[in-house]
Design a protein around this nucleic acid. Structure first.
Lengths: 218, 218
DNA sequence: CGTGTGGTTGAAGTGCGTCAAACTGGGTGG
DNA sequence: CCACCCAGTTTGACGCACTTCAACCACACG
């Protein structure tokens, strides 16, 4: 067993981050499933790095419609904003461990360490590209393409190769893909009938033909 | 919906007297309407600041479907990417004057000047927020809401208060809003019938009831 | 005056949403 | 251990918003 990893609280380090934590300051906090991390409109005073578990960020429109901006894996940074208030809310989907970094301290460190600034910029542009991909998908793909794109993307970012353990409900997926739970459910059934996936339970999906799923993403 | 977007202080100015640039290096280039500035997939070696005119950034999906990522006003920065190739194409919609900044030089300046790094980070997070707004719109708003949101947003970012001079075609708008030109045209006619706008010509629109249009954006 | 590009409008088609009902699995209490 | 519940999920029937197909219009240009 790799003891170096065993002592670190962040088992997954995505390419945007060089180390397990972004900065050596801040405190560790925990959140239960459904528990709020920060809310849209609150003043920004803290940036969070996901250390373990999964987080969803979302916005509520005037009449209650919800849009899930993204699902966040260990390593992801939350709350890096352009303005002085959070533009979306964040809450845990599983039990979550977060590294909470005071914004002031982060700013101070950034002025001292240009490399940290570079890294933050890279994270921010990466986030921009990701939301642009999301927007392109919502603008031009149909339901089957969206669900296929979601499955392939989730497999790449989170779990293993083809055995997915989805931490989110159908409603979460629907609000992420701009669909309804009915359409998501029907589409998954359709992919199952076509033999592209194998939905063992509603939360456990195996990608049988990842190449064909990828081909559906246009 | 929060329509704020971080742009640099570059007011619309006649070509002979351009506003402040991001950095004191780089060269000025011009592009005609429809002319390419950079293309999706090309290696990133230059970032551009729009000095005058309007630019569209877009992506092409496999089968020819197009998604317009954004329309860019004077002051906006183009080509700030997370990876080593442009993730969308950019071309002029009007005659355009751009400030072309070699990426290497920008990187060097950034390590020397932490304030510039802050500014770039602010631009990047602003761009991320803007694409997130775009995605939320595409995910959850209907055609009327999308067109209304587009008009209000365009009025804020570009032109004057309520007299819009649209530099883009219906196809551009449709590809930005995830609709067809037919739906865009019909929706504008509908808003006209309701007295919310006054479409003098197809490119010239007056917002008669901006408050009501804003109310439509959910 | 003909041609071409972009825009508008109508009629018909369709993909996804809405409404409604049944199902499933996990948790709880009798 | 079983009965029951309940949130989440699946599935069917139907409606509607947007797309598709098609025609016509407006204006610029040679």
């Amino acid at each position: 067993m790799n003891l170096a990893f065993a002592t670190l609280p962040c088992p997954v380090a995505p390419p945007t981050l060089l180390g397990p934590t972004l900065v050596p300051i801040g405190v560790t906090i925990r959140r239960a499933p459904g528990e709020e991390i920060f809310a849209e409109g609150e003043p920004v005073d803290t940036v969070y790095q996901v250390m373990s578990g999964t987080v969803r960020t979302y916005r509520l429109l005037g009449d209650g419609r919800r849009h899930v901006c993204d699902f966040h894996a260990p390593g992801d940074l939350l709350g890096l904003e352009a303005v002085d208030e959070y533009c979306c809310s964040a809450e845990g989907m599983t039990d979550v461990i977060l590294h909470a970094i005071p914004l002031k301290a982060l700013r101070r460190l950034t002025t001292e360490d240009p490399l940290l600034g570079q890294r933050l910029l890279s994270i921010a542009t990466g986030g921009m590209q990701r939301s642009q991909n999301h927007a392109s998908m919502l603008a031009r793909l149909g339901a089957v393409e969206r669900v296929a794109a979601f499955l392939v993307d989730f497999a790449r970012r989170f779990d293993a190769d083809d055995e997915l353990d989805l931490p989110m409900t159908r409603q979460d997926i629907a609000d992420y893909l701009g669909l309804t739970i009915h359409t998501v459910s029907r589409t998954l059934s359709q992919l199952q009938d076509q033999g592209l996936i194998d939905a063992r339970t509603s939360r456990r999906v195996r990608l049988r033909r990842q190449d064909q799923l990828l081909g559906l993403c246009a």
